[in-house]
Design a protein around this nucleic acid. Structure first.
Lengths: 135, 135
DNA sequence: GGTATTATATGACAAAGTCATATAAGGTGA
DNA sequence: TCACCTTATATGACTTTGTCATATAATACC
């Protein structure tokens, strides 16, 4: 795999290859909504729920908490402080009606994206299946 | 659909809703490599090829030209000036061996992403199929 | 009291995408 | 010749998404 040549490594450090390269992005928001719809959670728990299933995208804590805040700013989720059975209080999120409408729109978009990925894979396989024997 | 509340509209203009919202991104580079592999093109032609098929993601000219340059910086494509039959000279791109290796890696990643999207859609449908009758 | 765990959060930055606009060569017609 | 259109490449300012490192604070446990 080629390394990124644009990003200069920091002083005294090995070159750190761009981790984004090779990953389709923009998929965290609908997952958060769906997980919260399955049952209301706080950030830390969502972090664990994301980590448990490898079929879900990995997530960075900073991104998770910031995304939750954004979703709340936009009225897609609502939060309330909850003094759990132990540990510090946590912010419990749940999806609003607007959030559900948003999720439906997202699901359609994801369906379309899935079809585009399928089209790509089909074109990709077609190219290399045909080319294999001739080159 | 909810509107973005973070982005302020410009003076005298209607609020312009975030077009990114609701779209899975990060998919332009492999498409460029595959299109160029099908046959070498210059930027303007790629722009048209992207526009012709709705199963491909839309692309902005600025992003296209910049992405081509990045791919070249990274050694994934090579370019040469080509004085076409008419109009100004254009930069003709073709994929390198490194670019092909990169595309193969991308294809695996896209396969995995497609499966993650399927998993999302499945969980989404499962949630709403079950919930529909009860609410 | 000191340390680990639980929990939320911010700052600096990289990467991808959007929108507007600049620049320039070449073709065409008045 | 000049104005204007098409073809073609490119840059600047900005937003959004994601990464990595780190800060902060309450609670639990020894």
């Amino acid at each position: 795999m080629p390394r990124c040549r644009r990003q200069r490594p920091r002083e005294g450090e090995a070159h750190r290859c761009c981790p984004l390269r090779g990953r389709v992005r923009g998929f965290v928001r609908p997952w958060l909504l769906l997980l919260l719809l399955q049952h209301p959670s706080h950030g830390y728990e969502l972090l664990e729920r994301f980590g448990q299933d490898e079929r879900m995208p990995g997530i960075d804590p900073g991104l998770l908490y910031r995304t939750l805040r954004h979703l709340e700013d936009e009225g897609l989720v609502r939060s309330s402080w909850d003094a759990g059975p132990r540990g510090p209080a946590r912010r419990l999120y749940q999806v609003t009606d607007e959030g559900i409408a948003y999720l439906h729109a997202w699901a359609e978009e994801i369906q379309a994206t899935k079809e585009r990925l399928e089209h790509f894979l089909q074109a990709y396989r077609h190219h290399f299946d045909r080319g294999e024997g001739n080159e």
